[in-house]
Nucleic acid binder design. Structure first.
Length: 255
DNA sequence: ATGCCTCAGCTCCTGAGA
């Protein structure tokens, strides 16, 4: 079984690239973030034509998430139950016995800002909910655009970016707290090549110079840990014409 | 320097992203 996550920064613009990627990477589940469209605009038929069912949760202009699956997704939940939020950031479903949670974590803009406070509250709400979800669903995958680096290895210039957004101790504390519930960073179950990133700024030839951050993650529950065969960042689509600024991350499970 | 790209939308500029 293969699961993947990809922040596509507008599904309207990137639909052809998503279809092309799925043709080459026929994963069982693809979680999308930043689809940036209202629910009525979602291209369900184009995805069905290539063999994917979809669950989606959109909104106008910003945010928006979806789960594309080859087999039916059941018990679909949108956003974090018990956490009031007017942004479409999370979609969950059970697929082939695995509880899959696709999430677009808040950006946070700048430490000290209102958006940063919202990010901290959202992270707390997420943790409280995931703690319960793990009790209900031992086989669980939480993946998406976390907008947080684990540590300096995830940052192209740790000195220059110290304490800036995605790299603050507060954000990393929340990420570690999430992991401490009983999850593990699938990419680091294996030797990771230095300077492995999942996002590169559109400006200043950042991708060509590999000036990036690793902020897109796949976390797996303890029960699934022994089934993880591989986890890779696919940098290929970042070289496309009109690319997303994020690369897909792909998890292969032995099940 | 607060822009450098890119995207959506109350579209020829602005807000937001990261």
């Amino acid at each position: 079984m293969q699961l993947a996550t990809w922040n596509i920064n507008s599904l309207t613009v990137r639909l052809p690239q998503v279809l092309e990627w799925l043709a080459r990477n026929p994963v069982d589940v693809l979680a999308l973030q930043e689809i940036k469209m209202t629910d009525d605009k979602f291209p369900a038929q184009a995805l069905a034509d290539v063999g994917y069912q979809a669950q989606w949760f959109g909104q106008k202009t910003y945010n928006g998430v979806a789960l594309l699956t080859r087999t039916p997704a059941t018990d679909v939940v949108k956003n974090i139950p018990g956490f009031a939020d007017d942004m479409a950031r999370v979609i969950s479903a059970t697929v082939q016995g695995v509880r899959v949670i696709g999430a677009y974590f808040p950006n946070g803009q700048e430490p000290g800002s209102d958006k940063f406070d919202y990010k901290m509250n959202w992270l707390k709400g997420l943790r409280d909910w995931i703690k319960q979800e793990l009790q209900l669903h031992p086989d669980l995958v939480l993946m998406g655009d976390f907008n947080i680096t684990f540590d300096d290895a995830d940052v192209w210039d740790p000195a220059a970016l110290k304490d800036t957004i995605h790299c603050t101790e507060e954000e990393r504390y929340h990420l570690r707290a999430l992991v401490a519930l009983g999850l593990c960073d699938a990419l680091r179950l294996f030797p990771v090549a230095p300077k492995s990133y999942s996002w590169w700024d559109y400006r200043e030839f950042a991708f060509r110079r590999n000036r990036g951050l690793r902020i897109d993650h796949i976390l797996v529950s303890q029960a699934l840990r022994s089934q993880v065969k591989a986890c890779v960042i696919d940098k290929g689509p970042r070289s496309n014409e009109r690319p997303s600024d994020h690369a897909p991350v792909v998890l292969t499970l032995d099940r």
